[in-house]
Structure formats: structure tokens, C-alpha cells
Design a protein around this nucleic acid. Sequence first.
DNA 1: CAGCTTCGCTAAACTGATTTAGCAGAGCAT
DNA 2: ATGCTCTGCTAAATCAGTTTAGCGAAGCTG
Lengths: 341, 341
Amino acid sequence: MGSNRATLADVAKRAGLSKTAASMVLNGREGTRLSAEAHQRVFAAAEELGYRPNVAARSLRTRKTATIAFVSDIVATTRFAGGLIRGALDAARERDHVLLITETQGDAAFEQYAIEAILDRQVDGVIYAAMATRRLTVPPAILGGRVVLLNATSAEQLPRVLPDDERAGVTVAETLLAHGHRDRIALIGRNREKERDPEISLAAAARLRGIRGTLADSDVQLSTEGFCTEWQPENGYTATRALLRRPERPSAIICMNDRLALGAYQALGEAGLTIPDDISVISFDDDPIATWLRPKLSTAALPHEQMGRRAVELLLDGDDHEPSYVPMPLRRRRSVAAPAS
Amino acid sequence: MGSNRATLADVAKRAGLSKTAASMVLNGREGTRLSAEAHQRVFAAAEELGYRPNVAARSLRTRKTATIAFVSDIVATTRFAGGLIRGALDAARERDHVLLITETQGDAAFEQYAIEAILDRQVDGVIYAAMATRRLTVPPAILGGRVVLLNATSAEQLPRVLPDDERAGVTVAETLLAHGHRDRIALIGRNREKERDPEISLAAAARLRGIRGTLADSDVQLSTEGFCTEWQPENGYTATRALLRRPERPSAIICMNDRLALGAYQALGEAGLTIPDDISVISFDDDPIATWLRPKLSTAALPHEQMGRRAVELLLDGDDHEPSYVPMPLRRRRSVAAPAS
DNA sequence: CAGCTTCGCTAAACTGATTTAGCAGAGCAT
DNA sequence: ATGCTCTGCTAAATCAGTTTAGCGAAGCTG
């Protein structure tokens, strides 16, 4: 690869100046007394030689690598991860940085490897990301540098970016109310573990809080709450079937995520019910399947790209340690309508 | 970050030896005449100080960074990308390497940025990946070093890893034949552009070739071929509805990917047909939705993890420039059965 | 015109590793 | 006693930058 690249010495020689001068000019140092002409010559020489500084040499001295480590439990390889990385990648590029990506897979040895790789390479900062919004434990070794939590919190008061799940819950509930749903709003995806253990999920409790609070403000309660051990399509299917066996059919179903909603669609389809005419469905996440379903699913979107972007911004430009809550906009599609009759 | 780390000089001093000696011992250099005792002392000192070499300093001298660049058009942020990255990540870790991830998004300026970032950091090699299996143009600037193409080919004879789409086509066709399907096998997802332009897709033509060849060997032809401008669920839905309007209903539908299959499921469901009793469905990719559908979809899996892994292996240990074809195993699930009656 | 400041620039040290060239002492043969 | 080889180790150069300290000439002051 970069074998015969021009070095700073080459540039200096061509400009008829010292390395010092060349270095200062190229770094735009203030207060140096180099003549305008010297500036010209250095820029010209650098241009002509196609000079690009060697990052290793530079960071040896400056301890800056223009590299950010993106460490995730498992996020880098899931469908949800895409946007997170994309956003981070974009923001990093805008700031002339680059992303070093590692995955711990929840494995202590892997995490150890990641930390060492990061420390060895003296990255400028670490983004510690979680797949599911949750609390996690940051390895002390990286606390020496800048760390931003992405989609996560931790015991330490670190800067962090989180989706505003509670607000999303509010939005979802408001939408249903606005369409005239009141007493027959069901929910599927209740899950004690997710709701209680912040190490597993922060989203479940927050969404539920938002939903219930908003309904309560209008003197409404959820008519039925379906529990699911996982938030997978199968669980949504089963929960929805259970829902339909009850005497009073709901006018709307809130699903705690889009995979559950897929299951709900399947169960409703089998039961011969039409969405949204017979029953409305609304959900959270905005997984790609949301637009694949028929009808397209209305859902509060996890703003992954924005979150990734925000994390980099916080890392590089950030000063405040207030958690950064990113809004989850509702994607209004075709799965919500007024209750039948 | 790593502020007060022990340096090689520290280790040497503690061991009562020179930096030279310490360096040689720690690098396991053969042919050095350092005593066994010297070895002990160096190892002990390094251990006690928790010594880890500074990668920047080392690579300044050796031009090795233990870093691989993973450049993709857009793959890093799509659902399909996960496995690719995961596999590469795992293989890289096993070889004590790390991944620098960038994305060109098909944008020339972004590509330029990626290249410069890569060259500046003197990565040991580049994995150039495409989201869809296709031919792409590798920027000449990176051809100076090791490059492996992932899910892609190029004009240059570069080492590359590709899914064995043709063989997958064979497998899919064989499966249908084995279940007794013959004259009423339909296909959806024909697409002239994808089939003809290798810069768009290599998979479409290869899959089709495999399917047709295998059927022909048994004197069978596809009964209907549905064209789709895109391989999205909607197109699958429309194509399937068209299929069902024809006089003779197919006994099986081959979908060129799982998203089309989702569309097919939706159309079949609406038509009141049961999979696989009334009609079998088989597909390609093994997208996560394949297991979310009811019944679960049989599909030839794109072995993303293996491909990513293989790319790193080829890059680091590889010698041969033969394209590496990775098999696409058929995930046998519930969507294929014998034809009705 | 000596002394001081400012200007414009550079030599050399430094970052932390690897690598080349070679030195001192021991052992042996002559 | 001299010359030679082998052993066990080290000094110093090197990679490509940044940074510190400071030098010589010009200009100005008193």
C-alpha cells in the first residue's frame, strides 16, 4: 500500500524550507511568523507531491489518531445496527475521523480483546453501544478516555444517547385516542423481565409508562395486556390469538415492537380480520418489515442514524453530560383507523 | 486514553537489559543468542508492568498495523451486512487484527475519503465488499496493497469470495423435483437488468442458470416466469397475484429472494391458499423474515458470516487467486411439500 | 553605534517501537 | 602470547511526524 508516499521532509525540501516550517504551515498554526510566500511554497509543494501525513507517525507524537472505536455488545451485526453505524460513520467522516468496529458478543474474553485493541491503537474515544436500550457495565480500562454510551446507560455518569421511548409511548397512545379508540385498546408485549431489569431493557418500562400515562390522562385504561416471553413474531401471534379468544374484541392493538406486530398481523389475517377496518395496529421500532406488511404498519421509529450521529457529535464536540434523548417520530402509515362502528 | 502505559524502555530497564533485547524476546525472534535467563526477565518485567506495545510506534517502523479496512458500497448498514461484518470481525480477531469500517454509499467523494483514510493509516489490507453480489470497480489507489473482494468481482483478477448462487439454484430446483413438482413450477423475480448487467447483479443470472439447467436435466421447464422490477415484497405480491390469475395454478413458486417470497405469502394468503398444502414456496437468501413467516420459509441461505470470515482468511493467509465460492445451504423448513392431488 | 526587539526561520529533541551493525569477553587453537 | 570464533548483549539509526528552544539578520531606540 502506501509505499512511496511523499513525506513531510520531501515537501519541506521541495518548498526549500525546514520540516518545522512545513509542519507548521500545513497544520495552520497560529502565531508562527512564516511569510505568506513560505505558506504558498509549502502548500504548492504538498499539492504537487500529493502529500498526506502518515497517521501513525503523527499520532505517535500527538496521541491523536482521528479514530473512534465503536464497541457494541452485538449491535454491529443485527438489522437494527445498520443505522447506528451509518449515522456514526457519517458524522465521523464529517469530522475527518474513522471508525474502528468491534463486538464483544457479551463474551468477557472478546471484550478484553476489544479493549486491548482499542488501547493499543490509542483511539480518540470510544462509543459503547448496546443492541437493546439497556444499562450496561463499562470496562474500567476505557474510562481513562472519552466514552459515550449509545443506546445505553451505565452506573457512571457518562454522556449517553438514548431513544425517547417514553415520549414514543405517549405519541402512540395519543394517536389511538385521536382516532377515537378508548375502551378497547389492547397491548401485547408485556414482559416482567424487560420491564424490571434495566440490564435487559430500558425501553419496555419507558414505553409502557408513556402509554399508560397518556391513556390515564384521558381516563382510559388498557383493556387487555398480553404478556410475551420474547418480542418475536411467534409471541405476537400467540398473544394476539389469545386476545381474540376473549369476549370483547379490541379495537386497536399496541405492539411493543414491530416483530410482535408481524405476529399480530398473521393472527388477525388468519382470523379473517382486516387491518385497520376491523382492528388497528400500532407499534414501535420501524423495522424494515413495517413497510413490507400489508397494510403498512404505523410505528414509532427508532432513529438509529440520528443516534449514531449524535454519539459521535457528543464524543468529539460534546461538553455536557446530560443524556441526549433522541425523539422517536411516528411513521404514520395505514394500520390505524377509527374503530369500527 | 492509554496515558501512563509502560513502554518497551520501561520493560528493558526493569529487566536490566537493553530495548533491543526486550524487543527481540517479546517478538520471539529466532536466532538471537539471548540467554534463557534474559528471556525470563523480559517476560516477567513485561508481565509485571502490563506492557502492551504501542501500535502506532510499531507500525511506523514495520508498516504493519494489524488493521484491515472493510470498505463497502452500502453493505455495512443493511440487514444483510450483519453477517458479513460479524464473520470478518471474528476471523480478524482470531488473527489479532481489527476492522476499520467505511462506506462509500456509491458516492465518489465518500469513496475518495475512504481511500485516503485507509492509505493514511497504512492498513494491512482492504476488503472491498458489495451489498448485492455484483461486479464493481476497485479504485486504483488501493491496488498497491492486498485487496480481497467480498460478494463481488472486478475487472482485475483479485482474490474474491462469492456465494455459489448457481449451485443454490440447482439445490432449489432439485428440492422441488424431489418433492414431485414438475410441470407447474413457477418463478417470480425475473429481471432483465439484474440478469444482464453484472454491475447490478451476478446472483440473478446464476440462480436462474442453476434452476433452469437442473429442471432441463429432468426435461422440465418453468411453467411461468414472473418479472419484477425490484425484488421487494410488493413486487412479489403483484407477481404472485398475476400468477394466480392464469388458468393453471402453479404447484410451486420459486422466489428469487425472500422479500419476494414475503409478497408471495401475502398474495397467497389473500387468495385463501395454504402453504405448502395448496402451493409450495421456496426462495433464496435466508433473510431473518424467512423464519418469521408462517409457515417458515425454505430458502437457500446466503452464508454471510462464512463469507466475511473467508474474506479475512484470504486477505491474511491467502495465496491463491482462485475465486472462493461459498456454498449456500438450503434451510429446509415448512414451505415445501408434495403437490396437491 | 551598542542594545533591544521583532521577524523569519531552523536544528534538534521527542514519540515508542524495530533493526542494523558491532563490541566485549570467553574459549580455543597455534 | 596472538589470532580466531563464538556467545551474549547493546548503541545507535530509523520510521515520519510535532514541538521546543533558539539563531541570525533587520529594524528601531537611545
